[in-house]
Design a protein around this nucleic acid. Structure first.
Length: 458
DNA sequence: GCATGATCATGC
DNA sequence: GCATGATCATGC
């Protein structure tokens, strides 16, 4: 490609010509809208805004200036703009990537400067009617880059250890290895140190990370940081968190609450407590690092005999939406594949809970495929067929949803304020229930079994 | 004791 | 008002 632009200023000036306009105004080659071409808006921008032909170069789009162009959608919910999805970067060639270091990686060579062009995604509109909102040159902050380097190293380690097939987006904090391409057994790629074919993946900037970029840009939000550059440069985020919390291991719950003046009745008491132990002013899930990485804190209370009382719940699913989902892009799959959890473990001794340890964890790719996928598929089947209720016991409805006896890892159970009998407003069903004739039902969600959680933390 | 459905309680 | 973390209740 001829170097059409000689400076970043020129590029930005050109980019800003699109802002406020609709995609259709730049469709100079009359590209058709197509479900099979998800990148069509990006192509229209390349041709119609920047006047260069589309390509699949390894180099950044504006190679002479090292700027990569990314066109991506934002959604508006409750007047707040958020990413429609993660920002997907280049595909990881496991064979090539294994041979380089970070400075020479395909990620760094292509994406160190990213020209982001945001458009407003509106479900009810034709894609070509979407309007461009903003053009912004993204450069990684030094602190973020330290975390991203370690993320890259983690991915690199899996490749050089012959474990590319176990990669998961939730393995890492800001830079992820996101699935790319349709599933169904296709899109498998060879890896250098194992005969097992690995799912094709691309580097991605996680939706959680990108949302903080969007927040800073559009909502002018500022977040409290836990660690500074010097700390992040020498240790991993997980090591730093562990280090700051370790002095409190072995202290009882009450001791900790009174030590830091935390109200024990507060619902977010553990969120507040962990924040205090880390030495920050606010709550943990509002900090820069936790928000960018999308880490979710979960407290786990281990009883004296080593079991835990509670299964772990996830947001409820909407019946009308879940029946239209494909496993590859299903909400529960995306959630488990991209979320890292921080377990704050308490152990009971002589009736009292003591702070035992923390553990960062994300559900392994193989477990998600082996245990969650069949539960998801059975759940969808049951809803589609109007087959939810098995029979009426007189006091409650027994269902055909896959329960906790199915595989010991994942199950489906109610999660609502109201039971089916007492509901005033349930969620609409796509198919009326055959046994009861109900057209709406109480909220259900996916759960991870407590025995599985126990296994994970020990 | 566990499976499974039902419900409470806090706080955004 | 409702999402979500936390628990309860019943029956096999």
């Amino acid at each position: 490609m001829a170097d059409l632009y000689n400076s970043i200023d020129e590029i930005m000036e050109q980019a800003r010509k699109a802002v406020g306009h609709r995609v259709s105004e730049f469709n100079v080659n009359n590209r058709p809208l197509s479900k099979n071409n998800k990148g069509v808006i990006g192509q229209v921008v390349e041709e119609g805004v920047f006047h260069y032909p589309i390509n699949s170069n390894h180099e950044a789009d504006f190679a002479n200036l090292g700027v990569e162009l990314k066109v991506t959608g934002l959604k508006k919910n409750k007047n707040k703009l958020t990413m429609k999805e993660r920002l997907v970067l280049n595909i990881i060639n496991y064979m090539d990537e294994a041979t380089v270091d970070f400075e020479h990686s395909s990620f760094w060579l292509k994406n160190r400067l990213i020209l982001l062009i945001f458009y407003l995604y509106e479900y009810e509109r034709n894609d070509f009617d979407f309007r461009f909102l903003e053009a912004f040159l993204h450069e990684f902050a030094p602190k973020d880059l330290e975390i991203i380097k370690k993320d890259w190293e983690f991915i690199h380690n899996k490749i050089t250890s012959g474990l590319a097939h176990t990669l998961s987006e939730a393995d890492t904090l800001y830079l992820g290895a996101a699935p790319k391409g349709a599933g169904h057994g296709g899109d498998l790629r060879e890896q250098p140190f194992s005969n097992i074919k690995a799912k094709q993946r691309a580097y991605s900037l996680k939706a959680s990370y990108m949302n903080t970029v969007v927040d800073t840009l559009f909502n002018k939000e500022k977040l409290e940081a836990i660690f500074n550059y010097e700390e992040l440069a020498i240790k991993t985020f997980e090591e730093l968190v562990e280090e700051r919390l370790r002095p409190y291991y072995g202290k009882s719950e009450n001791e900790l609450f009174s030590m830091f003046g935390v109200n024990e009745n507060a619902k977010s008491k553990f969120n507040i407590l962990v924040g205090k132990m880390l030495g920050i002013k606010g709550v943990i899930n509002k900090t820069e690092e936790f928000k960018k990485a999308g880490i979710e804190l979960k407290t786990v209370r281990v009883e004296e005999d080593g079991h835990i009382e509670q299964h772990m719940s996830f947001p409820y699913f909407k019946y009308e939406e879940i029946v239209n989902e494909e496993w590859e892009t299903a909400e529960i799959n995306e959630k488990l594949s991209s979320t890292k959890f921080m377990f704050v473990v308490f152990k009971r001794k002589a009736g009292i809970f003591y702070f035992n340890k923390i553990k960062f964890w994300n559900m392994p790719f193989e477990d998600i495929e082996k245990y969650v996928k069949p539960i998801f598929e059975e759940t969808v089947r049951v809803i589609r067929k109007g087959d939810i209720v098995k029979y009426d016991t007189g006091s409650k409805y027994l269902t055909n949803f896959p329960g906790s006896s199915v595989n010991g890892v994942c199950h489906v159970r109610p999660h609502d304020q109201k039971s089916v009998r007492n509901m005033t407003k349930g969620l609409p069903l796509p198919t009326p229930d055959k046994v009861t004739g109900l057209t709406q039902y109480t909220k259900y969600c996916f759960w991870l079994d407590r025995d599985y959680i126990i296994e994970v933390i020990t």
